[in-house]
Design a protein around this nucleic acid. Structure first.
Lengths: 148, 148
DNA sequence: GAATATGCAAGTGCGATTGTTACACACTTT
DNA sequence: AAAGTGTGTAACAATCGCACTTGCATATTC
């Protein structure tokens, strides 16, 4: 399963921008801290921007900024902005519809899977980027404002 | 996020075996209802067997059987038996440890991600294969015992 | 002994993710 | 205005896991 690391990197990026407190952060710098490339970061920022979480500032001294306060960005918002695949992947080819079980297994599973997904999303909705950023400060003994 | 369809197919397989009520089911027949190949099913059954959920019977008239009652097999057991990847995929390359955020972002996110995962697993633990099989019967208007 | 069914290994095809390179475009500064 | 800076995007290669197929050894039932 090519599983994507986009969610983790996106939270990393948003926490970094948050701690810069208003100063734009270049995709190149974000790429450095996240151990990836600037192109990947820009693709990520493109999704975050589409979701209304960030904005970008062109030209010298430019970079990425938050489009709204960090305490109003939930991890669920980030997750939905950057993650493409469903939590559960069903049969690659639809099950045999003429079979007793195959004909209704998907419908039979759905409520249970929906509840699991809802519980999952509910927890992600409880945490904001601001809280993650605060945790970073607490754990890392960082002195603000951030220099690097 | 998992992109394998193993979990869905495994639940399908277990529900089918459940409704056969004691009669072994050949991997070839399971492959047919799940629209896949017998080799894929056998690989799946190998994992389920390792987890103590199924057993296999060789020879003519053989096939897969449940290793314990269907109402004692939780969807969480199935999920853990067949799914390899973590719910959240972290950075492909570890983030820059010398950076203010990179040095502690993983640790900072972990509690929130753990809560989401726990909520997810908790819901999957509430549902059993027996309940899914009962839903299949209810939705599909099936007359037991299962002929196909 | 013959037929049946599982278990497993090797090789192919496919799709998503990530990384790389290249270039056009917009904005800021001098 | 011109130069420098940074974003946005496209095209391509590399990698990885999943799923499919083929082939065969092994164990069990009839």
């Amino acid at each position: 399963m090519p599983t994507s690391s986009r969610f983790a990197v996106a939270v990393h990026v948003l926490a970094t921008i948050t701690l810069r407190d208003g100063a734009p952060v270049r995709s190149e710098d974000l790429a450095y801290t996240a151990s990836t490339s600037a192109v990947v970061i820009r693709a990520l920022l493109s999704r975050l921007s589409d979701a209304g979480l960030t904005t970008s500032q062109l030209g010298s001294g430019g970079g990425a900024l938050l489009a709204k306060p960090a305490d109003q960005i939930r991890l669920l918002d980030v997750y939905e902005a950057v993650e493409d695949t469903e939590l559960f992947t069903m049969h690659r080819k639809a099950p045999c519809k003429d079979c007793a079980v195959g004909g209704s297994i998907l419908e039979a599973m759905q409520p249970a899977l929906d509840r699991a997904r809802a519980a999952f999303e509910n927890e992600l909705a409880r945490v904001t980027v601001a809280e993650i950023a605060a945790e970073v400060v607490r754990i890392g003994h960082i002195t603000l404002p951030l220099t690097w």
